[in-house]
Design a protein around this nucleic acid. Sequence first.
DNA 1: TGTAACCGTGCAACCGGTTGTACGTCAATG
DNA 2: CATTGACGTACAACCGGTTGCACGGTTACA
Lengths: 345, 345
Amino acid sequence: MGRLRPMPPRATGSESGNAAPTITNVAKLAGVSRSTVSRAFSNPRVLRPDTVNRVQEAARELGYVPNPVAQALSTGRHGLLAAIVPDIANPFFPPLIGSAAERAEAAGMALLLGNSAEDPAREDMLTGKLALQVDGFILAASRMTNAQIGEHAKRRPIVLVNRDLPGIPRVLIDTSVGVTQAMEHLAQLQHRQVAYLGGPTRSWANTQRKKAFRRACERLGVKPVILPGLIPSYDAGRQAASGLLESGATAVIAFDDLLAQGVMAGLTERQVSVPQDFSVVGCDDVMAAQTYPPLTTVSARAAEAGATAVDLLAQRLIAGTSAAADVRVLLDTSLVVRATTAQRA
Amino acid sequence: MGRLRPMPPRATGSESGNAAPTITNVAKLAGVSRSTVSRAFSNPRVLRPDTVNRVQEAARELGYVPNPVAQALSTGRHGLLAAIVPDIANPFFPPLIGSAAERAEAAGMALLLGNSAEDPAREDMLTGKLALQVDGFILAASRMTNAQIGEHAKRRPIVLVNRDLPGIPRVLIDTSVGVTQAMEHLAQLQHRQVAYLGGPTRSWANTQRKKAFRRACERLGVKPVILPGLIPSYDAGRQAASGLLESGATAVIAFDDLLAQGVMAGLTERQVSVPQDFSVVGCDDVMAAQTYPPLTTVSARAAEAGATAVDLLAQRLIAGTSAAADVRVLLDTSLVVRATTAQRA
DNA sequence: TGTAACCGTGCAACCGGTTGTACGTCAATG
DNA sequence: CATTGACGTACAACCGGTTGCACGGTTACA
């Protein structure tokens, strides 16, 4: 680039190549200045209507469309939002991302995706790198420290999903309600000893679920068994099956559906049939309706969470930097009873 | 913005606010010109080493990092790739997107995500809108017409996934090999009549699979039953179960794992047990290892496809516009035998 | 000691928009 | 009829980098 003087003063006339038309081309064709063209798009009210028409017609003729990069440099608004997730292959996130992308588009913005691969350092790096090219962040199930998040929040608006950090707008999927319902359901089915198969220790969701589980057990007079936090995967669940059986529990609530599915596999391999001999409840309602037997699970409303987060962010972006108080959206959950729970044998 | 003359000539000294430091700040601190700072980052070889050091130190001190938006405007390189998929909630795509994002990052770029929601018009619009802010596109299972794709390819480099359009670089997951293997497997198990449960009619993958199925049936002397194309979902599969049973087939190859899973549910509801009474084979190996019983399926290597597509694109971007001949990468597939196929009853 | 080649850095134009202010025009008003 | 104000548009600085060329200083060689 850096066009130089010696060069012919720029082929002023019609487009020679297939380069995208610029505001200058439109201005020339419409017989107005560049600023007028700009205003015809960004602030038409200040122009005479017929001027606007003339410009628009010229723009249409050339196929002109404003260059978002130039706009970003000039205005500081990029029209981009970034969503950072720990693992896009985890079925919890795609619906969240999908609906976030949709809402972003509705707000005239596009969504940039970052995959932290469960690595806090990587998440930190990614967020820092993207900070200059996006207007704001959705941090889903962030693994960064509070301090790191706070630092990023100084540069760009952030909305958290499933992370409860006062001072930063956040939307939380409150599974404790659903877990409590699940416990009531199991108690009603005469289960007197129930296990909770934990997820990642550092996960906010896991903390919430475990707490709700404990509390409900106490209230209902059910004996709780807590199995340690695991990587939420099918294999981990399968391997946990034997421990479950030894624990004496007759039912389990798993941290998520992947674990639950693995547990079912492990149980079946040991000739324990679900739900006749053992009841299984999942969490997140991801894939639950897509397998057989259909899994009883706690719905997670991930899609809504993504949509809400984007709406919050967009709202904050158009309203200016108004801190908008301390937003904390709680999304309720509830138990979806399908076919993996039954009366205690 | 548009800072004006009447304003004090810009707080030259230390940063007053928390605005990101610019090349000008660094230049001032290092006692060199802006162009020197620029070169220290983009082309350090032309500078004296100690000058580079001085600039780098100043940059570090200020926490300077080049603004990618300004770079994009100036150089035309954005450091962004866009991936457009028909439906991010379909479990086939997340692994593809995930590995694409990873490879993009390895190449120093970030990945922008577009969700077309299965709508060709929307896909066309999205691609057009993003064309000015990204360096290239990955179009996965595109639903656009050849003409539309060709039009976009004129503006930006494109790599297709699972779409065979001569002249555009493409990576194709060739499931015909895997489907053929599946048929051989079933024939060996004494199945004499096998059904193919189709996917979206306009999908390239579906065409390939159906063709391979037909050919293998012919060669193996198996009677083929073709069931019409469906939306690939659990429910569609479940509803297809009765038709399958009526058809007289004793085994089915489903267009994808979602359909297969639904079929299994439908069969079980009708007291037909898998694999004792009926054999089921899926496609894509998505979720197959995460359910019970583990599904026999054709592996799809979606992650590799995403990675390959990005590598192709990145290669083409750094090599300049060299058309690089007519690239067509075929990814072989193979049958993964798990637990949903057995000897004919 | 004069000159040529070379090296390193600064200058200024440029990417494609945005926007505060100045200025010219015309109608309304005194 | 001169003055005022409103209105619409042009001018030019600016966003934060990049880059071709010019220019000044060294060094090498004649």
